[in-house]
Write a protein that binds this DNA or RNA. Structure first.
Length: 432
RNA sequence: GUGCCUAUGGUGUAAUGGUUAACACUGGAGUUUGUGGCACUCCCGAUACGGGUUCGAUUCCCGUUAGGCACCCCA
């Protein structure tokens, strides 16, 4: 092995597992995401909120009690003073924390908030699952548990995904009841499954105690068969919850959103009550977005009773879906600049003058490209061609002396000499 | 955390238990220091890492790391 090689190997690093660089060639989709999120938020008047990327561990320990997200998948940081901070694994609890901390209930009721930020979960990466990922979320927080808010959150998420031209969306929706009626249902479920415990898969035998609702969406064959005659949650919830669900569905009907009532849908986080939902596109089995009502979260965080509903979409999943559905939005994938003017210099003096020319074009609002590192005219022209420039501005010794520049139409090859003073004007005229 | 599969230049692919690891694209220089597209020439650039078997390993074996898929879980 040569010396050169060993040096190279030593400085070889890669991004941490499950975390990715977003390279220039991909920024196009991300920009599209940001624009779509801002547009939808703006048109429904959701106000942007940003919370720190780290929070006190206890926020998630309380809000995510009993879930893998809070108990196994958090990146935790031990501070010098001894307190524990964690990289946020989800966006809702921090927002509720901010809502309570700043007394945002005084600001507006209900308060509609949205966010776009990074979340961290320590888990095995696979398709659509990363250790660092981005979510866009919408939350409606206030003093009333109006079912129309549930519909509004779903609507906003749905429109956001639609805005990205992702096709054939469906919404799966369910109600998981409230404090009053859910425990009775869970008990019935445990009795039903408990009676035939040995027929269950090993995971489900464990879940029977810890997370009985999860039995309903187990994918193991033997468990799937049993769920058909299992008690159905929407039949067992209390009348108030039933009414709430019915109203949500009616609102969705009113705005013609395509939903399916899925009695087996349950959610990961325990702060949810009543409405839970997930949004899918035809092409993938993983949810693009999800959410639900979380009327108990504020109390779990030590605040007073506050009603809330919210949901989020996974940005990486949306980008992935856009790619797989061939959604490019018209522009080339590559890093081609959209600048149309290429500055070419011949010689040192011309290079200096081009720096000045570049500035005056910038002041005139004209985007330019150049390759100051290249010296030969030929290779600069080649570059101008490759970058698909419409015009080349060529400056040589003669032009420096005459305070002029050659303007060349890259399409026709026609060129003429014009005075430096008139360049900006002429370029603008030609680009029209 | 568990299971299965994978790992060759920046990208996509070849090949081999034995000389200098091949091809295409991309990138750079030139043919053409006052003019691009085509063409031609040249150049940069790789066997993920660490062990083992062997006279010899990029190839076979083990471990690690990373990636993919599935489970768990979840956006």
């Amino acid at each position: 092995m040569s010396k050169k090689k060993t040096i190279k190997k030593k400085i070889f690093f890669q991004s941490p597992k499950g975390m990715h660089d977003i390279l220039p060639g991909e920024q196009f989709w991300w920009e599209k995401m940001r624009k779509a999120a801002n547009k939808v938020a703006d048109s429904y008047n959701f106000l942007r909120i940003d919370t720190p990327i780290v929070e006190t561990a206890e926020i998630f320990e309380r809000s995510g009690k009993g879930t893998d997200i809070a108990e196994k998948q958090m990146y935790s940081l031990k501070m010098k003073g001894g307190d524990q901070l964690v990289l946020r694994p989800e966006g809702t609890a921090p927002i509720m924390r901010a809502y309570l901390q700043h007394g945002l209930s005084k600001f507006k009721d209900p308060l509609k908030l949205f966010y776009f930020g990074q979340m961290f979960r320590y888990e095995q990466p696979q398709q659509g699952r990363f250790r660092q990922h981005n979510q866009v979320g919408f939350e409606i927080i206030g003093s009333a548990d109006e079912p129309i808010y549930d519909a509004q959150v779903i609507l906003a998420l749905f429109r956001l995904i639609e805005e990205l031209k992702i096709k054939n969306l469906t919404i799966q929706i369910n109600s998981i009841g409230c404090r009053v009626c859910r425990p009775a249902y869970v008990k019935k479920l445990q009795v039903y499954y408990g009676g035939q415990k040995d027929k269950l898969c090993r995971d489900c035998q464990r879940r029977l105690k810890t997370r009985p609702l999860r039995l309903l969406d187990c994918k193991q064959e033997k468990c799937v068969g049993m769920k058909d005659s299992a008690p159905i949650i929407v039949d067992r919830i209390c009348n108030i919850c039933k009414k709430h669900l019915k109203d949500v569905l009616e609102y969705l009907d009113e705005i013609s959103l395509p939903y399916t009532l899925n009695p087996y849908l349950v959610r990961g986080l325990d702060y949810y009550n009543r409405t839970v939902f997930e949004i899918f596109s035809e092409s993938s089995a993983i949810a693009l977005g999800s959410g639900g009502r979380y009327d108990y979260l504020s109390e779990m965080l030590g605040g007073k009773k506050t009603f809330a509903v919210g949901g989020s979409v996974g940005v990486e999943r949306l980008v992935e879906t856009m790619k797989s559905q061939g959604i490019l939005g018209g522009q080339r994938l590559g890093q081609k600049s959209d600048a149309k003017v290429f500055l070419v210099h011949i010689g040192e003096e011309a290079k200096k003058k081009n720096l000045v020319l570049l500035e005056s074009l910038r002041e005139a609002g004209i985007k330019t490209m150049e390759m100051f590192g290249r010296e030969s005219l030929g290779s600069q022209m080649k570059a101008a061609d490759k970058e698909k420039a419409a015009l080349a501005l060529i400056m040589g010794q003669k032009e420096v002396f005459e305070e002029s520049v050659i303007i060349r139409d890259m399409g026709s090859g026609a060129q003429e000499i014009i005075s430096l003073k008139k360049v900006a004007e002429e370029v603008k005229k030609r680009l029209k």
